[in-house]
Design a protein around this nucleic acid. Structure first.
Length: 416
RNA sequence: GUGGACGUAGCUCAGCUGGUAGAGCACCCGGUUGUGGUCCGGGAUGUCGCGGGUUCGAGCCCCGUCGUUCACCCCA
């Protein structure tokens, strides 16, 4: 009498074996370069005071205005599942006074994020991101390092078919001057209702319009890049010089639009070529006013968020990762109850020595156990029965060559 | 949120103009006594996404709904 099935909520990404192996590999690959660069872990809540995102990310953004999972908790507080990582990171830095210590504060995180969007391949309501934040330093060198760390993560996965796009959003004065001219330009256009509404929220959005005729029209629009203050321009030039010297390839995209309000100055995106419509695999930039906006000191910062789900999709599209190569070192097949106990003892000892060891549980026939061992891709197999327990020697079988050799149980660890 | 496509065993799919479901792979057991990969034999599995409707009869037609997917939007 089967009960009605309960399925996962709409649009979530979840990973089970064997694909979870790839997910783990991708996530670890993205994190490793940050660890090597001295970034330290922060583990933050997935829900925050709704106000944090309204103030930090900006109420005019789509993310905040229509994509947040917001609810009222039992204490009548408005709570929101985090749609991105930077605002929460800044909140924690302020709350724990990390900004009162040595600068820059360098942090990394990894976890689930939530946006109530229409699901699509590569776009989920719960998705995974790895990110870093470097707070309290204005040096263009740190911009370049942050970008290089992200790039190294993608390279560690083996990705090749992606490009890094960079631009500078300049400082507040640069943007204000540009906005005046851009708004003037847009007012001369004949726009449909949805588009002019978007323009009124954030005129830069029109640069992101995918319709061919809009692209033509917008090709005549004034570019923010041409309004950069001297300081912003020098900073950005320096970032590019560092990237060139480090061999990090990039293309300039003066029309780049970011969906979060806090970005300033250096801004970048990683775009994959094989991913269709949801092609952004990572992005980030400077957010020089965010800390102050959230009630902290006036410290600048820069960071990125990389999409683990999308990076995995990209890796699969490029065919650069494989499911094999994740098997254990040894598979022990016990024959009988006494042998099972011995097998478990042997397994525990070997695991202490750092070997991965599995046991054939269940009362399967030897042939069935061998088949299971074979399918798991394990490197070695031993059978434990009366003889082995008596002599303390086992026949260690190499599963790829089929060759067996006699090994003393006590020296199995060395033989693996 | 808007528009299009799709939804059959664990997976990939077949099922002709409506007549109460199939293949391959995977899975389990066996091919005589303690060693896998090939081969052979046998076996289990589906409320044909769900709910209505039309019909003597629907996996095939209609409506709704849920889910997936593609594009828009947005972005990781």
């Amino acid at each position: 009498m089967a009960r009605a099935k309960i399925s996962a909520p709409k649009g979530v990404s979840e990973y089970v074996p064997p694909r979870s192996r790839l997910f783990e590999f991708v996530r670890e690959s993205l994190i490793a370069p940050a660890r090597l660069a001295g970034y330290e872990l922060m583990e933050l809540p997935v829900f925050e005071d709704t106000e944090l995102f309204k103030r930090g990310v900006g109420e005019s953004t789509d993310v905040v205005s229509k994509e947040m999972y917001t609810f009222t908790d039992r204490g009548d507080r408005s709570i929101t599942l985090r749609p991105e990582g930077t605002a929460g990171a800044m909140r924690a830095v302020i709350e724990h006074a990390l900004d009162r210590g040595p600068l820059p504060v360098k942090l990394w995180y990894s976890g689930a994020f939530f946006r109530a969007e229409r699901p699509q391949a590569g776009r989920y309501r719960q998705f995974y991101q790895v990110g870093i934040e470097a707070i309290g330093l204005d040096d263009p060198a740190i911009d370049a390092e942050v970008i290089a760390v992200a790039d190294a993560g993608f390279k560690a996965i083996g990705l090749k078919k992606y490009r890094l796009e960079i631009t500078s959003l300049g400082d507040a004065q640069s943007r204000a001057a540009h906005k005046v001219d851009l708004t003037k330009f847009i007012s001369t256009l004949d726009l449909d209702e949805a588009t002019s509404l978007r323009a009124s929220m954030n005129p830069l959005r029109l640069f992101d319009d995918k319709r061919a005729q809009m692209r033509v029209v917008m090709s005549r629009a004034p570019l923010l890049m041409d309004y950069l203050s001297d300081a912003s321009r020098r900073h950005f030039e320096s970032v590019k010089t560092y990237l060139d010297a480090l061999g990090v390839a990039y293309v300039l995209n003066p029309r780049m639009v970011r969906g979060l309000d806090y970005y300033t100055g250096t801004t970048f995106e990683f775009v994959h070529e094989l991913l269709g419509s949801q092609s952004g695999i990572g992005g980030g930039g400077r957010y020089d006013g965010l800390m102050h906006e959230l009630g902290g000191q006036e410290l600048s910062g820069i960071g990125f968020g990389l999409g683990v789900d999308r990076a995995l999709l990209a890796a699969e599209a490029e065919g650069v990762i494989a499911l094999d190569g994740f098997a254990s070192d040894l598979y022990i097949i016990p024959l009988g109850d006494a042998a099972m106990l011995r097998a478990m003892e042997i397994a525990m000892d070997l695991r202490k020595a750092g070997k991965s060891v599995e046991i054939a549980f269940g009362d399967r026939a030897l042939k069935g156990a061998m088949k299971a061992a074979d399918k798991s891709g394990v490197r070695f197999v031993v059978v434990i029965g009366d003889d082995e327990m008596l002599t303390s020697y086992v026949k260690l079988k190499n599963m790829s060559s089929g060759v067996t050799s006699s090994v003393k149980i006590a020296s199995l660890a060395d033989a693996l």
